[in-house]
C-alpha cells in the first residue's frame, strides 16, 4: 500500500505541474487586469487544437510546434484584448467579465463548427515512453510538461522582475493612473499582459496534447482547477501558481485514493473554498 501512496504522491506532483502551466497565464491576467478570464478554458482548447492540427496535418510534433503555437496564441490574445475585450468593455470590470464570457461562447462554437464535437488524440513514440523509477513508471510527456512549467514560471518571474516591460506591467497592475502619469499607456499594457497570458496557454496546449485529448469542450476540464490554483497560490503570483498547482495535483491524487475517484474531485473545491474563506490572499498573495 505504501507503494501506491508514493506513486499517488509523485503522480499528483506531475499532474500538478501541468495544472500550474494552465494557471500561469490566468494568474498573470488576474494580477494585471484584476478580472477572472472566463475565456481561459476556451483559449486552452484553441491552443490544443492548434497543436493537434500541426501534428495531424503537418506532422510536426507538439514539442516542436510549441514556439509557433505560443507565439500565435500571444498574437491571438493581444488581438482579442485590443480589438474585442478592451473595446467592448471600455476597461469596466463587470463588462470585461461579460466580454470574456462572450468570447468563450464564440470560440467554443467556432471550433465546434469547424471540427465537430468528437474527442481527438495523437499517438507518437513518446506516448508510451516511461522513465522507470524503482517500481514506478513515470510518463515522459508528463515529466516534460512538469519541467517546462517550472521553467516557464521562472522565466515569467524573471521577465516581470528584470525587464522594463515587466516593470511597466507591474506598475500598471498596481496603479494604472499613476502609471499613466509616468507615460505608460495602461490599455497597451493590458493587451500585452493578456497576450502573454494567452501565449502561456499556447505552451500549455502543446505540452498537454501528448498525454491528453482535445475536443471543443476540453477547456471545461481544466478551468475550475486553474481558478483554484490561482486563488490558492495568490492571485497574480507566479511562484504561487506553481506551488498551488503542485498542491492541488497532490490533493486530487491523494483525495482520489482516500475518498474514491468519484468523491475525490470534491477535495479540490473544498481546498478552494477553504482558502477563499480563511486566507483569500492565497499563499503568496499580497494583501488586497
Amino acid at each position: 500500500m505504501a507503494e501506491i501512496y508514493a506513486a499517488a504522491l509523485i503522480n499528483g506532483l506531475l499532474i500538478g505541474g501541468v495544472y500550474a502551466l494552465v494557471a500561469l497565464g490566468l494568474t498573470l491576467i488576474y494580477g494585471v487586469l484584476h478580472i477572472v478570464n472566463f475565456a481561459h478554458g476556451s483559449l486552452l482548447m484553441v491552443a490544443m487544437f492548434a497543436a493537434w492540427l500541426m501534428a495531424e496535418k503537418a506532422g510536426v510534433h507538439p514539442y516542436a510546434a510549441l514556439p509557433v503555437v505560443a507565439l500565435a496564441m500571444f498574437a491571438l490574445g493581444w488581438l482579442l484584448y485590443r480589438y474585442v475585450i478592451g473595446r467592448v468593455s471600455r476597461g469596466e470590470d463587470r463588462a470585461i467579465l461579460l466580454a470574456t464570457l462572450g468570447v468563450a461562447v464564440v470560440l467554443d462554437n467556432v471550433f465546434l463548427t469547424l471540427f465537430g464535437g468528437d474527442t481527438r488524440q495523437i499517438e507518437s513514440d513518446l506516448t508510451f515512453a516511461v522513465i522507470e523509477a524503482g517500481p514506478l513508471l513515470l510518463s515522459v510527456p508528463k515529466v516534460i510538461a512538469f519541467a517546462v512549467s517550472l521553467l516557464l514560471a521562472g522565466a515569467l518571474w524573471a521577465f516581470m522582475a528584470l525587464t522594463d516591460t515587466g516593470r511597466a506591467i507591474r506598475a500598471v497592475a498596481k496603479e494604472p493612473e499613476g502609471a499613466r502619469l509616468m507615460g505608460i499607456r495602461p490599455e497597451r499594457i493590458f493587451a500585452l499582459a493578456y497576450g502573454i497570458g494567452i501565449g502561456c496557454l499556447g505552451a500549455a496546449g502543446c505540452l498537454l496534447l501528448p498525454s491528453f485529448f482535445v475536443s471543443p469542450h476540453v477547456g471545461n476540464v481544466f478551468v475550475l482547477v486553474a481558478f483554484t490554483i490561482v486563488v490558492l497560490g495568490g492571485m497574480g503570483s507566479f511562484p504561487g501558481a506553481v506551488v498551488g498547482g503542485l498542491l492541488i495535483g497532490v490533493t486530487e491524487s491523494l483525495g482520489g485514493l482516500w475518498l474514491g475517484e468519484s468523491l475525490g474531485p470534491i477535495g479540490i473545491s473544498l481546498v478552494f473554498i477553504a482558502v477563499l474563506l480563511f486566507r483569500p490572499t492565497g499563499l503568496f498573495g499580497a494583501a488586497r
Binding site: 501506491i4 506513486a7 503522480n11 499532474i15 510518463s139 481544466f222 482547477v225 475517484e261 474531485p265
Partner: peptide
Amino acid sequence: LLPHATPTRDFTNIVLR
C-alpha cells in the same frame, strides 16, 4: 469496483490500483 468522476483528468492512480 473503481468508480471515477466525469471529467477525470488522469488515470494513473486508478491504473496503479
